[in-house]
Design a protein around this nucleic acid. Structure first.
Lengths: 151, 151
DNA sequence: TTCATTTAGTGGCATATACCACTAATATCG
DNA sequence: CGATATTAGTGGTATATGCCACTAAATGAA
C-alpha cells in the first residue's frame, strides 16, 4: 500500500464511532463525576430501573452487550450496594436484577447531572442534529450484518 | 422519578453512541478476526502508518484518546513485534512510533479484511448514509464542550 | 424416563480506556 | 544561571467489554 494520499481515519465507520464515543464518554463522565458514577454505570442503572426486574439476558440484549461483559460491569454496582440480583423462582437459571433503595437514590442524583450533560450536548450540536444522530445510532445498533443465505 | 413513560435509553446521546460502537465493534472485530487483530488495533496501526513517525502525543490527539490509554493499547502491538518506538534526538521526552516491517505486512493483511467489513457496512446502511454518519461522528470528536468564559 | 440440546450465567483471560501520581526533560522567567 | 512551570510518557488501579470454557438448569427427542 502506498502511503501517499491515504485518508486519515476519516473513512472507517468503526474508528470514527469509537473516537466519538471516547470524546462523548469523557464529557459525560466529567459531568457525572460528582456522583461517583461513570456514564456507563448511570446508563446501566437507568436501564435496570426502567425494566421490571429484568433478567441479565434481557439487559444485555437491550444494550447490545455481551452477557458476560454485563456480568462484569454489574459487579462494582453490586459491591457498592446500588444493585442486587434475585433468583427467578420459575426458572432457576435466571437471575433478575433490580436497584436497591440506595441505588434508587443514587440514580436520582446522577440523573440530575445527566440532564446537565445532555442539555449541554444539545446546546452545542443543536436539538435536531442530536435527534437525528440518535436515530442513526439507534439504527446501527439494530443492524443485521448477516449475509443473506445463499440460494 | 416516576417509572411511568420513561423512555428507554433512546434519549441519551452517550449511551446510544456506546451501544452503536459495541455493535459495530463486534462486527468489525468479527471480520478482522482471521488476522488476529482487533479493529482497534487495525485502526491504531493504520494511524501510525499514515503518520511520519508520529509521537505518542500526536497519535493520542488524533484519536481523541488519553495518552496513557494509548501507551497501554500499544503494548500488545509492541510485544507482538508490529510496532516499535524510537527516541527523538531533539527532545528526549518524546517517543516516536512506527511500524516494523512485520507490522507493515500485518497492516496490509488486515486492511484487506477491513475493506470487506467497510464495504459490507456500506451495503447495509447505504453509501450516502454512511458518509453523513461519518461526518456527524467526526464533528462530535471535534466538539468543544467548555462553557464560554464568563464575562 | 433418559440422553442430547439449548439456554442462562460465571469465571478466567485479554484488550480498551480513563484518571492519578510520578519522573524526566524542556521551556520560561527573574 | 537557577527556581519554577510546562510537557511527554510511564505505571498503577479501576472500569468496560469481548471470547471461551464450564456449570446448572430447562427442553426436547427417542
Amino acid at each position: 500500500m502506498s502511503k501517499d494520499a491515504l485518508p486519515g481515519l476519516t473513512l472507517c465507520n468503526n474508528a470514527l464511532l469509537r473516537r466519538a464515543a471516547r470524546k462523548l464518554g469523557q464529557f459525560y463522565d466529567d459531568v457525572l463525576a460528582p456522583s461517583g458514577l461513570k456514564a456507563t454505570q448511570q446508563g446501566l442503572l437507568y436501564q435496570i430501573h426502567i425494566g421490571d426486574e429484568p433478567t441479565m439476558g434481557a439487559i444485555a440484549a437491550a444494550l447490545v452487550m455481551d452477557l458476560s461483559a454485563l456480568g462484569h460491569t454489574l459487579k462494582p454496582l453490586i459491591r457498592d450496594g446500588y444493585v442486587e440480583t434475585i433468583a427467578d423462582p420459575d426458572d432457576r437459571r435466571i437471575k433478575r436484577v433490580r436497584l436497591t433503595p440506595r441505588g434508587l437514590v443514587k440514580l436520582d442524583e446522577v440523573m440530575k447531572l445527566w440532564h446537565v450533560a445532555q442539555q449541554r450536548f444539545e446546546d452545542v450540536v443543536g436539538k435536531d442534529q442530536a435527534a437525528s444522530l440518535r436515530a442513526a445510532l439507534d439504527g446501527i445498533a439494530a443492524l443485521d450484518f448477516d449475509l443473506p443465505p445463499a440460494g
